[in-house]
Design a protein around this nucleic acid. Structure first.
Lengths: 223, 223
DNA sequence: ACTGTTTAAGCTAAATCTAAGCTTCGACGA
DNA sequence: TCGTCGAAGCTTAGATTTAGCTTAAACAGT
């Protein structure tokens, strides 16, 4: 899951980036509205966190331009406390949720999770495919009730596959959503992680192989 | 845009109705699940806002029945705070989004807008000819509900035929559209792939042959 | 130095392409 | 109305190319 933060206060931007990366999200940061707008409209993010008060182009403006051009990426607005006018304005312009500053990281994280949860997802917080489950809050992966330890990237790839259960995802698509902007990655790297994942969640178990290869298109996970 | 609210707490139902009418939506209200189910299945709403806890028939039950009868109207669930089991249940039963009570009207409005704005083609662009279907998002090809595995080129040729359903396509036309510019291909190669496709989508099935040869002109697919 | 990530190379198996022989279609003359 | 013949299309087997898998080694961050 790839997230863009647009926030001019470096201290906040960094703290949030670090925290979200801890959670295995791929995070890019822009420090003003102009930059942020360009990044959001040219890359395919799963979520944009957007400050309202910013130099050059304010958050509402960025949001409005994105929505105008048909971009429906979920947007979480960060507003100054008690600026209820901003909030109303923002929600009217197509924001999906908002958060007043200052905020606790835990609260931000909860909102982020809620927004990344797509309607197609099975359970609120636990993604399931067959007898495999991934608890996206506690970062616990199990198959047939046996715990499985995954590294950060392994986890991120698996989560992305599960959030798009049933869909075929190309290597480039996976690269775009699991790695951040300045990662310069070969498609072969995705193959390697798929192999790691298979060694942990498929090979040791009796049931059907969950990660399927669709030659020429990519990979897919389903029950 | 026409919205149905199903909510047994009159106070909330009214407040939401007023608010949405302010926004120029047409709003109907039902005060229990039974009533709500009947209204939703007999009228053609653009969105249904559905409380989970209700007398006579709970929201999840209503939702499940609607989906069972093929009704895909977007549904926004209202759940009591922290009832994550309801949420999971609801999303499993086909809800498109949910909102925990209590909520700010602005937030509800944002969700409503998001659901009404949702592009409908997310449902997947599915090309159909007779009992054959090709889902171009999930790369799934089926005939009479049986899955069919195609290689990349086979898939590409079939997709091209289906996108031009009813038209006669010459071998040269197919070569030009399915193979890339510098591929140096003989018309015979198209014949070969047509044969592969027929072996997979026509021969094993009882129905009519879908891929027709128009001698001297090319090929055509139709129902 | 250890763990996790990335690159690189060799290997395997599947997809693609070619080419040759075979079948079918339909025009045309007997 | 046939039978014949050439052209168009079909089929098949093998040759070739390419995608994906595996493994190990290089590299990076802690």
């Amino acid at each position: 899951m790839r997230i863009l933060i647009v926030e001019d206060e470096h201290r906040i931007a960094h703290a949030v980036k670090e925290g979200l990366e801890q959670e295995t999200y791929a995070v890019d940061v822009c420090y003003d509205g102009q930059e942020g707008y360009l990044a959001a409209s040219s890359e395919d993010y799963d979520l944009v966190i957007l400050d309202v008060m910013m130099p050059r182009m304010d958050g509402i403006e960025v949001l409005r331009k994105l929505r105008e051009e048909g971009n429906h990426t979920p947007v979480l607005l960060l507003t100054a406390k008690d600026q209820s006018r901003d909030i109303a304005h923002g929600l009217n312009s197509g924001a999906d949720d908002y958060l007043a500053k200052p905020f606790a990281f835990e609260v931000l994280l909860a909102r982020v999770r809620a927004l990344l949860r797509r309607p197609h997802d099975v359970l609120g917080e636990v993604l399931v495919a067959g007898d495999l489950s991934l608890d996206s809050i506690n970062h616990v992966v199990k198959r047939t009730d046996r715990n499985i330890l995954l590294s950060g990237k392994e986890y991120a790839v698996l989560e992305y596959l599960l959030r798009n259960r049933g869909k075929v995802l190309s290597k480039h698509n996976i690269m775009a959503h699991v790695w951040d902007f300045d990662a310069d990655i070969l498609p072969n790297n995705v193959e390697v992680f798929i192999a790691y994942l298979r060694a942990k969640i498929d090979k040791p178990f009796a049931g059907p192989r969950l990660i399927k290869t669709i030659r020429g298109f990519g990979y897919k996970i389903d029950a």
